[in-house]
Design a protein around this nucleic acid. Structure first.
Length: 181
DNA sequence: TAGGCCATCTGGTCCT
DNA sequence: AGGACCAGATGGCCTA
């Protein structure tokens, strides 16, 4: 007892999709008619017309969302080039990546601060060793994301980004992070 | 074949 | 009133 799917009104709302959809989603759907729910006749013509317009806007909205996601994918360092990250993977990976970048900056700041102190006081005595413990969170929070210095990471991520790149390995990022002055 | 991912439709809610 | 946003439902495609 499904709601009637009207295969007949293919003209409404589906016309704009086919070629557009082909160009947008290289991986998945063929431009074939998908599903249709609701009343077979679409209800009153006025309501139906409004629904069709709303569907069109919703489609465009999701397309722009996907475009933004695609831009994000291009910015991220993709390790296996041929595999496309899923949406959730992209978001999690971006999260990790941003964390690692900020961690790298933070470490660079700490290091700069240490070398500055070393230059001022050639015999620091005992105070120099603590700076290496980057979890000490002293006062040098230049731009750290204010939450915590060792975030709990997408711990529940079933999947993959962490397979490519562990957020804990901030040093890994030094490979593609420009030198911080 | 089951499960994951995705695109789309749809109705509800909030905002302008 | 109409648009934006959201979450649920549904069906197609792909892979293990």
């Amino acid at each position: 007892m499904d709601l009637a799917l009207s295969d007949t009104d293919t003209s409404s709302g589906f016309s704009a999709r086919s070629d557009d959809e082909n160009s947008r989603s290289p991986c998945a759907t063929s431009p074939v008619m998908k599903k249709r729910r609701g009343r077979a006749d679409g209800g009153p013509p006025v309501k139906r017309n409004r629904r069709v317009k709303a569907n069109d806007r919703e489609r465009n909205r999701m397309h722009s969302l996907n475009d933004a996601l695609e831009i994000l994918r291009e910015v991220l360092p993709a390790c296996p080039e041929e595999t496309k990250m899923t949406k959730i993977e992209t978001l999690r990976f971006a999260h990790n990546y941003i964390w690692a970048l900020s961690e790298t900056l933070r470490n660079a700041d700490l290091e700069a601060e240490r070398s500055f102190h070393r230059a001022e006081a050639p015999n620091p005595g005992s105070s120099s060793s603590e700076a290496w413990s980057c979890s000490s969170s002293s006062s040098s929070s230049s731009s750290s994301s204010s939450s915590s210095s060792s975030p709990v990471y997408c711990a529940s991520s079933p999947g993959s980004p962490e397979n490519y790149f562990q957020p804990q390995d901030a040093m890994f990022l030094r490979a593609f992070v420009p030198p911080v002055y």
